[in-house]
Amino acid sequence: MSLDLQTLAALSVGDVIAERDFSLTRDSLVRYAGASGDFNTIHYRDDIAKSVGLDGVLAHGMLTMGLAVQPVLDWLGDPALIDDYQVRFTRPVYVDAETGATVSVIAKVGQLDAEAGTARIDLVVSFNEATVLGKAQVRVHAG
């Protein structure tokens, strides 16, 4: 099932369409580095991260961006219904060597045009009670 016009028209701005928590460990960062080709050392070496003024190893921004859209994709059904996805990286997600990190995603309807069959889904993505992405928006259309 993918998002159809009828389902879209029944939405209201502010509706939560999906939410999910993601657990990250240092292993997740190594896996993402390999898969994406981003081997920036601040994502696996605490000493280097600290030398550039960070608290320690942090998740790749693109890992956070990549996981944050997953609940929206599952809700949409068909990934072709996404027209545009953008984020601004505002705060680091520090991944503790022992306890890891939990990233929470809440996806809400931010804007709706039932006539055009389009919607903007806004993502609230947080870690340690603070948002880590700004202007995280997924523009979608009904199929």
């Binding site: 072709a80 996805y85 984020v87 990286f89 202007k135």
Partner: peptide, 17 residues
Amino acid sequence: ELSHVVHGDQRFSQSRP
């Protein structure tokens, strides 16, 4: 220089997956 680079924002505008 890569060591001086921070990712500010990112956007994908897609015609198809």
